[in-house]
């Protein structure tokens, strides 16, 4: 998060723009929108000092629904956009939002390098293991035997991407998993993520009730992890690798790596000083 920008309390609804979401009734993303506004309210951030950055997809519509500054960019590049903004404007609280396809498939390279770079921002991925906006194709986090994907009618046959394992291995400084069914728990995790310096990754299991109706069961299956967050990356890795169904929630890892923020020095008074090196 940025320097002390706390303000008078604004209720969570004050962070909503009033634009009606395009999401299907029952979509988990409504709850994530609610959790995000609660977190912003809880941190008492002024809407004008927050920028929500996204790519393309159902969950990437998020910025339009908030009363903060917003940035609905091209598919897969939210983290690159967010990096440019944060480096140039370290005073702004930068939050990237998006889905599993946007973040881990087309945006996979930026995901790796944003974790590695550890710029101070929060990334909320609404993971529903499907491309919803294009109407039901397998995503990088889809199970190999899911046979309802219209491009992969016999299942993908390939192992799903493990976002939190990759985040940890690539250097993310804060890693949490939440369930959209637990609005308050998700809001708390987002607050912690925003507060924590460096790149914070929050995976929110957010059901797609249209193309993955079986994900309604997540409400019952997700459960808090029986252990607290660790600052030991090896321990966090072991937990993730022995996490059989990927439905444990909570803050998993809290690192202490310093964020990437190139110092912006005051300018020399006269840019013409730069001419000197060219003089013969």
């Amino acid at each position: 998060m940025s320097s002390d920008t706390a303000c008078a309390l604004i209720e969570p609804r004050g962070y909503k723009s009033g634009v009606k979401p395009v999401w299907c009734p029952g979509c988990g993303d409504y709850s994530v929108l609610g959790s995000l506004t609660k977190a912003l309210s809880g941190l008492r951030l002024q809407p004008e000092n927050v920028a929500i950055i996204s790519g393309i997809g159902c969950s990437s519509r998020m910025p339009t629904y908030l009363s903060t500054y917003g940035f609905h960019g091209v598919h897969g590049r939210a983290l690159a956009l967010a990096t440019g903004l944060k480096v140039a404007r370290p005073d702004i609280t930068v939050i990237a939002t998006g889905g599993d396809g946007d973040g881990f498939s087309i945006g996979g390279n930026h995901f790796l390098h944003t974790c590695r770079r550890n710029t101070d921002m929060t990334y909320i991925v609404m993971d529903n293991q499907v491309y919803g906006m294009t109407k039901g194709q397998a995503s990088p986090t889809t199970e190999p035997n899911w046979e309802k994907g219209k491009l992969t009618p016999s299942g993908t046959g390939i192992n799903p991407f493990q976002p939190l394992v990759i985040a940890l291995a690539s250097g993310a400084n804060f890693i949490a998993r939440c369930s959209s069914s637990d609005t308050n728990g998700t809001a708390r995790a987002i607050m912690e993520a925003i507060r924590h310096p460096g790149f914070s990754m929050v995976q929110v299991l957010s059901p797609c009730v249209t193309f993955r109706p079986e994900q309604r069961e997540w409400k019952k299956l997700t459960r808090p992890a029986p252990v607290d967050a660790t600052s030991d990356a090896a321990r966090a890795a072991r937990r993730l690798l022995t996490d059989e169904d990927g439905l444990f929630t909570g803050i998993l890892y809290v690192g202490d790596r310093p964020p990437y923020q190139p110092q912006i020095e005051p300018s020399i008074d006269n840019i013409a000083e730069l001419d000197k090196e060219f003089r013969l």
């Binding site: 940035f71 091209v74 690159a80 990096t83 440019g84 903004l85």
Partner: peptide, 14 residues
Amino acid sequence: LASMNQIIGASFGG
């Protein structure tokens, strides 16, 4: 892809 999007992000920031 990143360099292009980063400059758009920075410019959005002014």
